[in-house]
Nucleic acid binder design. Structure first.
Lengths: 176, 176
DNA sequence: CCTAGTGATGTCAGTGTCTGACATCAATGA
DNA sequence: TCATTGATGTCAGACACTGACATCACTAGG
């Protein structure tokens, strides 16, 4: 993180990271699949939180409640993980490099897929489940982008709730 | 495409592609930013179709109509571009490789961003515009996945309409 | 106390992607 | 006729990543 913040992602070599960590390049690649993956370790934990929230909801909970539960749990977990300042620093690094954005999008796509699977487990049909998975990820990442914005002080969970409301009115209009 | 289909993306070297094309490796990289980009040329055209549909809609069109217009235009354009069989072949290659999926997700994220910008141009507020951009992309890619499925024969535009309907009922339930 | 095995790390050689610098060569236009 | 321009080739090199093998500390069993 220090090296990335100082010289940028591309200008930082794996040799440099390994040296700073006191290991060889080969050892680095035994811990991380590739150079980008350093910034995405522990991502599967967040995914588990989303999924657990859905799987652990009361049996009679309507779809809405499942999505809200997943977002609340996920948002809270992310906030507790390493704090907003860490998230800001990490986000700036990722925002400056397309390779990293690609990786982040892949992680989010997997999150969407996991959420969809969890919903299918609860009897939701395939297509609505996929769309709901995307919706959850959309609300999550839009709220996250706002959460790490320079002047923002509000809670991530609160911002997610606002996002859900926005989608509601957005689609409500849609009925005409 | 032939080489990728035959040996897979990773096993195909740029040297091999260049040779097949009758040029040198260096020339390949003057036409494509990297090896993956070969499969994503002409993507900006599709993006333009989505944006034009929004920008060109009647001044008094409600948000719903803008999203439907964008999806109809984009779906139709994609269908007319190179046909379903080509899309299937391309999709299979991409589905077999995570690097290519990452690139595709990046392209879709850019599409979402463009759609959101086009909506902002029409006076939609920032957050709803972003969410609507994601929604359009979600409906588009979910419908696309179904469109290229093995036994599917329905129209892409029709599948997108179904997706929109699904989101409607999905969020309608949400009101309680 | 010895020893065989196990896991983490180092070493090394090699492949493949991608880039910068420079050379070549054909087409174009004054 | 000649300078210019654009496309391509040539070459060397940086860097990411991998497979194969060596080393070495630690541990369990005799």
């Amino acid at each position: 993180m220090e090296l990335f913040a100082e010289h940028g992602f591309e200008a930082t070599t794996v040799a440099g990271i390994a040296e700073r960590a006191g290991v060889t390049e080969r050892t680095f690649f035994r811990y991380f699949a590739d150079k980008r993956e350093v910034l995405f370790a522990g991502e599967q934990h967040l995914e588990a939180v989303f999924v657990s929230a859905i799987a652990g909801a009361p049996a009679d909970a309507p779809l809405t409640d499942l999505l809200v539960a997943a977002l609340d749990a996920g948002g809270a977990a992310l906030q507790d993980m390493r704090g907003r300042e860490f998230a800001r620093a990490r986000n700036e690094i990722i925002g400056a490099n397309e390779q990293l954005q690609e990786r982040e999008l892949l992680k989010l796509a997997k999150l969407s897929h996991s959420v969809a699977s969890a919903l299918v487990e609860r009897g939701i049909a395939d297509v609505p489940a996929r769309l709901a998975g995307d919706l959850v990820v959309s609300v999550f990442s839009t709220a996250f982008a706002r959460w790490v914005a320079a002047d923002e002080t509000r809670d991530l969970v609160e911002l997610q709730r606002q996002g859900l409301t926005a989608i509601n009115t957005l689609v409500r209009t849609e009925t005409g």
